[in-house]
């Protein structure tokens, strides 16, 4: 028996009630009707007053019953990038055998109105987020709210688990194409022969155009630029700019490689990450938390 208050507290801990501007209206109405009734002993007004009071009072249990049927679960976010809008998903489950009404999910500064959720059904709320920094991101104030039944109270059911996601660096910098034009030599194995050009001789033997050497000239072979079956290597230390600029640049390239289905390797300090081995997601997470 002693545990009852504790159980009660536990059950309702996650539920909060907030006033609305209509609560103020009801309060003013109650005062107004009270004075109208009291000063003139007017029973018609008394009856209206008591109805307003009783309805406002009974709105509490109705609203509480409505909101406590809701169970919220964080369903993760899509890829989040610093300073870019993203979407997080929150699963809203009606665990009761009756429908719940006027459900709106809030998190951070945005919300998603779901309205009615049928008994034992789930709806997913899409919450827009706008993280400012890379790294770990936590959704603040994540709750489902309902103003059912009378708009006089906002019943809020707070999510119980953590709403955490990882925000990747803001992808920006030179595009992969631009980069490849500049550093063609860094591309791995070469393919089709495209032509020759003069050389000062400080080139590898494989690139020497031996036919021209025979004629007394030293020329080098030029090959096609894009070769898909070769690996790209991105070295953090060889990039320009500060830490965030470098990570942003790497993120941009990672995403471009992913889009173009290119395999790549990233060197972050003493660590080397191969996209084929660890996957793009892991690399992005490493960049986010670096």
């Amino acid at each position: 028996m002693m545990k009852l208050p504790h159980i009660f507290r536990y059950r309702y801990r996650q539920i909060r009630q907030r006033a609305t501007k209509f609560s103020l209206l009801v309060t003013l109405l109650l005062f107004g009707l009270f004075f109208e009734a009291y000063m003139h002993n007017f029973n018609l007004v008394y009856i209206t007053l008591f109805f307003v009071f009783a309805l406002a009072f009974s709105a509490g249990p109705f609203g509480m019953r409505n909101i406590k049927a809701i169970k919220l679960n964080f369903a993760g976010c899509g890829r989040l990038f610093a300073k870019k809008e993203g979407i997080c998903k929150i699963k809203v489950q009606n665990s009761a055998s009756y429908p719940v009404w006027d459900i709106e999910v809030f998190a951070d500064i945005s919300s998603d109105y779901l309205g009615k959720i049928e008994a034992h059904k789930i709806k997913v709320a899409n919450i827009k987020v706008f993280p400012q920094k890379r790294g770990k991101f936590r959704l603040k104030e994540c709750y489902a709210q309902s103003r059912f039944p009378l708009y006089t109270v906002r019943f809020q059911n707070y999510i119980q688990n953590e709403c955490e996601a990882i925000v990747y660096p803001n992808p920006k910098g030179k595009s992969l194409d631009e980069y490849l034009n500049i550093r063609l030599d860094l591309i791995g194995e070469e393919g089709d022969f495209d032509g020759i050009s003069s050389s000062d001789g400080k080139i590898s033997a494989s690139r020497i155009h031996w036919a021209s050497v025979a004629k007394g000239e030293i020329s080098q072979k030029i090959f096609e630029k894009s070769i898909k079956n070769q690996e790209l290597l991105f070295d953090y230390d060889r990039l320009k700019g500060d830490k965030e600029d470098r990570l942003s640049q790497l993120t941009l390239w990672v995403l471009e490689c992913e889009r173009k289905e290119l395999d790549f390797e990233i060197i972050l300090g003493s660590n080397r990450f191969n996209s084929k081995e660890v996957g793009v997601e892991k690399i992005l997470q490493t960049l986010a938390l670096y």
Binding site: A54, L55, S58
Partner: peptide
Amino acid sequence: MYLLSLPWVIVLFIFF
């Protein structure tokens, strides 16, 4: 909701 509020209205009307 109306039904739930009725007992309150009756009691308040008599005893207020």
